[in-house]
């Protein structure tokens, strides 16, 4: 085969590959939308589950919102603070490199292992019980490495010239970080945080082991309440429902979960654009 026709064939093969990978996403969206939209109603969204496969998913929606909000409350400040230390203060030595390697490994850690740790350490050893608090803390373990990595990257790409300019005006390092570096890195930091939030929104194994069984009939009233969540609800109904109504509800909950996830992504994008505009790019 001559190089020219090989060029043509390869180009076509690559095009097919990209088409195949890109088509999966809309197919899933349409599939879930088609199967799930029928069940969506005010009642479904505002009532509690009944008799396993009947009723609504209000406690699950609120449970997911609480879990993810609380997880962000723990994970985002801790992750950003770690990223600032790693990017600005940590000496470039073996220890820092190992911490970085460890963070990257943690990002790929199977969530069931994090769930097991949360169960043994938080739920049993610290006696937090299967609860909102235990679930949110465990979820923040999931979120942390993503937040740290993306934030550190964002902080590091802030041009050195900004720091020099600020220091030369008599600012301390910390003043420079707070007033110049962090605002300039904000788009990337937000992306990092919301990447982490996105991970937490859809996480099933961790909440299963640490937060609650999934069919809780009540919105959590305290940090120690067992807390249902959409992914758990979907898992239970998808695997154990015997009726059409049950399967339908799994799809309905999936659609709500997808919309929540899209909401997080879109707000991430909007926040990012807002900051980029403010930075004058």
């Amino acid at each position: 085969m001559n190089p020219v026709s090989r060029e043509k064939i390869m180009k076509r093969l690559l095009l097919i590959a990209v088409a195949l990978s890109l088509i999966i996403l809309p197919v899933i969206l349409i599939w879930v939308g088609y199967n799930g939209s029928g069940i969506i109603s005010i009642e479904f969204l505002t009532s509690r589950p009944r008799l396993f496969e009947y009723g609504g998913i209000y406690p699950q929606i609120m449970g997911s919102v609480y879990l993810v909000s609380l997880c962000t409350l723990f994970g985002a400040p801790l992750g950003i603070a770690s990223a600032i230390y790693l990017a600005e203060y940590a000496p470039d030595n073996r220890i820092t490199q190992s911490v970085r390697f460890f963070t990257e490994t943690l990002a790929g850690m199977p969530s069931i292992v994090i769930g097991l740790f949360g169960l043994e350490f938080l739920v049993f050893y610290l006696q937090l019980k299967t609860s909102l608090l235990a679930g949110a803390i465990s979820l923040s373990f999931m979120m942390l490495p993503w937040t740290i990595r993306a934030s550190e990257e964002a902080i590091k790409t802030v041009p050195q010239e900004y720091r020099a300019a600020s220091l030369a005006l008599g600012a301390t390092k910390w003043q420079t970080i707070v007033n110049v570096v962090i605002p300039a890195a904000m788009p990337g930091i937000l992306t990092g945080v919301l990447l982490g939030v996105g991970k937490a929104v859809g996480e099933t194994a961790v909440v299963w082991l640490t937060a609650g069984s999934g069919l809780e009939a009540f919105v959590p009233r305290s940090l120690s309440s067992p807390t249902g969540s959409l992914p758990m609800y979907i898992y239970l109904l998808a695997t154990q429902a015997h009726t059409v109504e049950g399967v339908q509800r799994a799809y309905g909950a999936s659609l709500v979960l997808l919309i929540m996830f899209l909401g997080v992504s879109v707000s991430a994008l909007m926040a990012r654009n807002y900051y980029l505009r403010r930075l004058g790019n």
Binding site: Y162, S166, A168, V180, A184
Partner: peptide, 10 residues
């Protein structure tokens, strides 16, 4: 400095 380095602000 060598290259103009205004902060990304107004």
């Amino acid at each position: 400095f060598q290259r103009p380095n205004p902060f990304p602000m107004s």
